[in-house]
Design a protein around this nucleic acid. Structure first.
Length: 243
DNA sequence: TTCCAGGCAATAC
DNA sequence: GTATTGCATGGA
């Protein structure tokens, strides 16, 4: 088995399915559940279940750029309070009011512009699935955010690479320091084909793998020196370098 | 106080 | 095309 698959299987064995993407949690009266504002959906891969949830992933993917998801949830809660969680309502809302709501997630001036630009595009989609190229053409949507939207919002088989992914692969000598986003994405996607070539099965693996990486990295790869106590360092890897 | 968080665009070479 | 810098809040 190749190294990437070994890592995936090891993490899955330790942590189990993660149920990403987490969604806002509403009660039967359609109010935000104040005790559990959001929740994960372990072993249910039929999400998102509505266009509202698709849009929620898009919004969250932009808001979570370089910040913690807990801050994003606070921003989403603020948006819920001012009834501003759909494209139409956001566009109809005073921009300063919108900025104030998302302020807690940081970079709020930029992110509000990014979200407005995204909504303009989103409205033009007419419920179609966006292409990666289209997403990358929007100001504020880079490779990771595009893959996040496609993988978790539209269930497309696109591997999402983040800073943790690169950090772990680098620490395990699976890539070199200069590896680009697309290099790491290709390594992961090519490697995981060893498990299955079925697109739908791979999509689920991509969704879980990214979530597992974040879960594991928060514990072992947030503080320097990275990887202290990391079990991945103890499994036998083949060390396939990429150029 | 310092460091980091589920990045991106603009700018300078 | 590669490296650097500004963007910003909140928690550990």
């Amino acid at each position: 088995m190749n190294d990437i698959c070994k890592i995936y299987k090891t993490l899955y064995k330790i942590y189990g399915p993660q149920g990403w993407w987490p969604f806002l949690n509403y009660d039967s009266k359609n109010n935000l559940n104040s005790k559990n504002i959001y929740n994960y959906h372990i072993n249910d891969y039929t999400f998102p279940k509505s266009s509202n949830q698709i849009f929620e992933v898009c919004l969250g993917s932009i808001l979570t750029q370089n910040t913690t998801f807990s801050s994003v949830v606070k921003a989403l809660k603020n948006l819920y309070v001012i009834d501003c969680l759909t494209p139409e309502k956001i566009q109809a809302t005073n921009i300063e009011k919108f900025k104030k709501a998302i302020k807690v997630s940081g970079y709020y001036n930029q992110k509000s512009n990014y979200i407005m630009a995204f909504i303009k595009f989103y409205n033009s989609l007419d419920s179609k699935i966006p292409t990666r190229k289209e997403l990358l053409n929007i100001k504020g949507i880079g490779e990771e955010t595009a893959d996040s939207i496609l993988l978790y919002g539209y269930n497309q088989t696109e591997f999402k690479v983040d800073a943790y992914t690169k950090r772990i692969f680098l620490e395990l000598n699976l890539i070199n320091k200069k590896a680009k986003y697309k290099d790491i994405k290709k390594l992961a996607e090519d490697s995981l084909q060893e498990i299955t070539k079925d697109k739908e099965e791979l999509r689920i693996i991509y969704q879980e793998f990214h979530a597992l990486i974040v879960k594991h990295a928060k514990q072992f790869y947030s503080k320097k020196p990275y990887g202290v106590g990391c079990i991945l360092k103890k499994i036998n890897l083949n060390y396939i370098f990429i150029q």
